[in-house]
Each structure stands twice: as structure tokens, then as C-alpha cells.
Simulated scan of single mutants.
Amino acid sequence: MSGSVSGSVIVAALRSPIGTAGHGLAGVDAATLAAPVLRAVADAVAVGGVTGRIDEVVLGNCMGPGGDVARVAALAGGLGIEVPALTVDRQCGSGLAALEVGAGLVAAGAGLVLAGGVESASTAPWRMWPPVEGETPRRYQRAPFAPTGFDDPDMGLAADLLAEESGVTRERQDAYAARSHRLAWAARERGGYDAEIVPVAGLVHDERPRPGLSEDRLARLPATFRPGGTVTAGNSCGISDGAAVVAMVPAGVQAAAGLPGLRVLATASAGVAPERPGRGMVPAVREALARAGLTLDDLDAIELNEAFAGQVLACCDELGLDPDRVCPDGGALALGHPWGASGAVLAVRLFTRLVREGRGRRGLAAIAVGGGQGVAMVVEAVA
């Protein structure tokens, strides 16, 4: 996205619990899942002293029914018929891309934007290719990420190949996955997620984190995507349902209301070869940091979407980033990966760490995208 976004401030950030597909949120469609989170964020900024209408709702979504999920969710959340809404699809990066769009709208003059993402893998409609010459319609699991002439591997296979090419061993992947579950369970037990979660359909906690998921247990799992591979069900994220939303306002509105928040210093989107989509966050991170005039050493909190342990570790190695700095309260390997929402979940996690808990000043959120893209955002806590 072109143009400055540095006048945009996130002043509220909430999410639903993340449910494992087919379980706690299985009966909640995408719009119904996003609606209470939108409502809660709108109420939070109103209580905080931000008045006036919501100028736009922007939600990322990948696999919903269409029909502008953001608009349906805004109406279901009681935000008012006068509030316009836009649905963004950058696949796994949709939630963070929605924040990028929202920050740009605020920088262009909007007074209050709600931005985030939602995914209900459980209720995603079945899609069919139309029949050809009398054949039976064929169901497809995903649309093509690249046109004919480009390799377009499934994300798991691509992550496995990236790990191999980057020299990331199975042992490192299992150790990192075990770490994610250990940290996420510890955060859940101490109430580290409580302030950011809006209960939905009776679910109050993330479903996926597992206590005691050791490296030894993970080592017993077979390769999932190719014989002799290193990516398994245990060191991959889970297919999940969830929603996350932030409120963005101009810096002047934030200062007048006296609300602490996260100033958006810079955003960036980038492209890489479609056959290795997991690398997409690397150039996006580099560009966002360059636009912000910062380096990784200047950051206090780093949230990368953990789609696959091997993919995250390969990106960390390429960036020269110590993986122990990433997702200190666990990430998508433990929490799950609700595709269209995951990028926004990263921003909510930064808000909790830097604003609610005051553990540092500057942070980074980044996510890789099917088809070979990446999205990154750099933020700074402000009083």
C-alpha cells in the first residue's frame, strides 16, 4: 500500500477464542462469529471516549460464503445501516491486509475504522467447478494461488520443501512446536489471553493448546505431506475458526481521548515465488522495517504467524532473527490458524503485550500468504 499510515493508532483490540474446526465454534458462521467481536470493539472505544460514527468496517476473509461478509457482520453486530463495510481477500494475510487498508483510510481522513478478519473453516461452503461436457461437478478445496505456468503446491508441501532447502531439521521443528504449546498453555493458565477474548457461543478459551506436548511425543508423528519429509500434523498449525478486530483512529483523536494505543509506524506487502509462499513474510518484514527506519534489534515484541514450524524457522534464519524472540506467549502452532483472521490476531497479541501489559514499546506482526506474498506491520506503543 502506498502513502503514509503513521498517523493511525490502534486504540482497542479484541478477538474471539480460536476454535478447532468442527468443535467449539462449529455451528457459528463467519458473519455471526465476527459480529460480537465488532460490537465489543465498538463499545470499548465508545467507553474510552471516542465518539462519532464508524466510518468503515474492513474484514479479511478467505473461505466464507461471499456476499460481503464484513457488511453482514457489521449489520449483525448492530453497528448501524449507515456503516459501510469491505471484505478483503489476501488469503492467509487477509486479516493483516485489512489492518493495512484500515490504517490507510484513517491516514486519508477517516475518523474511526474497525479492521480485522474472520474465518469459519467449519462452515465454509463447498465449492464446485462447473461440469464440462456432461461430467459430474468436481469439488475443490481451494482456488488456484497461481496461474498455469507457475508451480502451485499446497502450503504444507511447500513448507516441507522450504524447510529442507533452508536446512531446518525435523528436531528443530518439533522443538519449536513444543515451545509454542508450552508458552500458550502457560499464558492461558495465568490469564494472559483473558483481556483480549470475547466469548462466543459459550467458548471462552482457545481450544488447541495442549499441556505436556513434548518433543518426544511430536517425534513419533509421521511426515504428512511427502515421504521422508519433516512437516507433520504436530509441527503444523491447526485448521481453525476465529475472529479478531481492532479500532483505528487518527493520532489526534487518540490523544484527545487519552487512550493508550499502538501507532502504526509502517506497513508493507511483498511478493515472492509462488512455489515457496512461506518466504513471503521475509521481504515484507524488511520493507516495513525500512519504512519505519528501524531494525529487528529495535523491536520489543515480534508476532509471526506460525503456519508451520519449518516455515517460521526458515524465515527467522533468513532474517537473522532469534526464534526465541517470536510469539513469546505461543503462536498459531498452538492457538490455531483461522486463515482470514490470523493476521489480525497477531495485532491483538501485540496490543496485549505492549499496551495492556506494558512489556515494551515497538512491535512487529508479519504473515506469509499462499501464492507467494507476505504482509508486515510495525507499531509503537503510545500513551
Rank of each mutant, 00 (worst) to 15 (best):
I197L: 11
R170E: 09
H181M: 04
E164N: 00
Q173P: 05
G192L: 03
V198A: 07
A108E: 00
R170I: 11
E189N: 05
A175Q: 12
G167S: 11
E119M: 05
D151M: 09
P125N: 02
Y176D: 12
A195C: 06
A121V: 03
L105G: 06
V132G: 01
L157K: 02
A103R: 14
A159P: 02
D174M: 12
Q173G: 12
S166M: 09
V200S: 08
L162W: 00
A108H: 01
A107V: 09
T148H: 09
E171V: 15
L99R: 11
F145G: 10
V200P: 15
L105K: 14
P153D: 02
A146Q: 02
P130Y: 05
V204K: 10
R190C: 12
V168I: 15
S166Q: 05
W129H: 10
G109D: 09
R190W: 06
A124T: 05
D154S: 08
A175K: 11
H181A: 03
H181P: 07
E171L: 15
A158E: 08
M128G: 03
Y140H: 01
G156N: 08
G116K: 06
L99G: 11
A108F: 05
A103V: 10
W185H: 00
V101K: 03
A97Q: 15
G104Q: 15
